[in-house]
Design a protein around this nucleic acid. Structure first.
Lengths: 239, 239
DNA sequence: ACCTGAACACCGTTCAAGT
DNA sequence: ACCTGAACACCGTTCAAGT
């Protein structure tokens, strides 16, 4: 898809260029990720962007896994962390809304983050503060699990948005299949979703807005579910 | 990793064998998915398992996308659908717990399903019944969105479990990084999660159990969040 | 230490030619 | 119609050899 481009024209040393650094490799990989997503570029394309041979990437950073790990850390570091002057609900709402805006610019990073866990160095201060807020709110020993649930839910949603960007036909297909049932009285459930899909299709609002809406919807449901846990912990009705 | 094996030894026709069918191709692909996950085999390996050349797969089914779509439909069809004699909460709990057991046997299918949407033919009866149950429970126009939220949340969790199977070191890394903070009073949040990680590490219970526990935890939170929506709809307190 | 240049063992996909 | 056999344009990764 992207043009392959020629190999480096001449030796760096012969051209009087300074050695490549690991930071330069990671910066170039981050820019490629912004353009094409974390799975949208190859080691060979990265080397080409730096005007070197692929072996240079291995020499300074390592294989594909090492490079994408470094990119992930860099992107996570760009997510702003709200201060602790907010309620736990507003703090999570804010960090997860802001996080979505950053992560959606670097498609594929959210999924990597969910899979490898939150141990990328840049995430540690956020984890610490978030769990402390839940502890202060009365979650006690449940604070780490509740934290994990909220971040995991949000980042999974972002990961799916990212993945769907790579399958533009899928949405049309859904609309087509379900829309066909919109007046089918024998299938009241499919009819309801079919009608909704049909309405959205003719709506001038963009798909981006629909996705953000579902993200905020899911986030609100998650926070509501965790609030309920809190009320159960403080002696409410069980189960 | 898997042995490549030799090309087909001789012509099918010359050996008196009947023509391959699309169903045979899909069945073989499904079995490979059970063994190695949806992304764990190649078209060439599939052809080899059928003892034919790769072009045969293209002739009968199509490219990789077409084959994995067919596999996804087949696996979804294997998820049992509970009857409508349950409350909506128990119906969703059951179909999503059973669904997890099936999907976890075919790693990668859950993610495909989340990305391409639920329009694989085998899913339609389940969608119809599930939305009807929510409609009867009083969700009205919110039924399709609530349905989508519940299935999406569950299948995303399964997709992440699948993906983590392919990164066995990630969990150790998380335990190592966070465990180091378990007695760090200056970072009370990290200390709490670090202590939990440490306990789980020495616990003889398997990781499988922990994953199932978190799945059930998340499911309960999701259902609680949707219940809250229901009470808001029926005239409860707003926001 | 840093980089070149080539090689190795793979991919998905296409297609003319055979039967 | 079905299948063979080969080709095309890619991958990630490794490594001897140069400077």
């Amino acid at each position: 898809m992207a043009p392959q481009g020629p190999r480096p024209r001449s030796s760096r040393r012969a051209s009087g260029l300074p050695p490549i650094t690991a930071a330069q490799v990671i910066a170039a990989a981050t820019e490629l990720t912004r353009q094409h997503g974390l799975d949208g570029w190859t080691i060979r394309q990265l080397a080409n962007a730096l005007d070197v041979w692929p072996g240079v990437v291995y020499h300074h950073v390592g294989g594909r896994d090492a490079v994408t790990y470094a990119v992930t850390d860099r992107v996570v570091g760009a997510i702003p962390v709200p201060g602790d002057n907010l309620t736990w609900q507003d703090w999570f709402r804010k960090v997860l809304s802001d996080g979505r805006l950053v992560l959606r610019q670097y498609r594929g990073v959210a999924r990597r983050l969910v899979i490898i866990g939150p141990t990328v160095p840049a995430a540690l201060p956020t984890i610490d503060l978030g769990i402390q807020l839940l502890q202060r709110a009365g979650f006690g020993a449940e604070a780490p699990t509740a934290y994990r649930y909220l971040f995991n839910s949000a980042f999974m949603l972002i990961a799916v948005e990212d993945d769907r960007d790579g399958h533009p036909r899928a949405r049309e297909h859904v609309a087509e299949v379900l829309g066909a049932y919109r007046a089918d009285a024998a299938h009241a459930g499919l009819a309801a979703v079919g009608a909704q899909v049909q309405v959205r299709k003719h709506d001038p609002e963009s798909l981006r807005d629909q996705e953000e809406e579902f993200y905020e919807y899911s986030l609100s449901r998650c926070i509501a579910g965790v609030e309920r846990l809190l009320s159960e912990l403080s002696g409410g009705t069980g189960r």
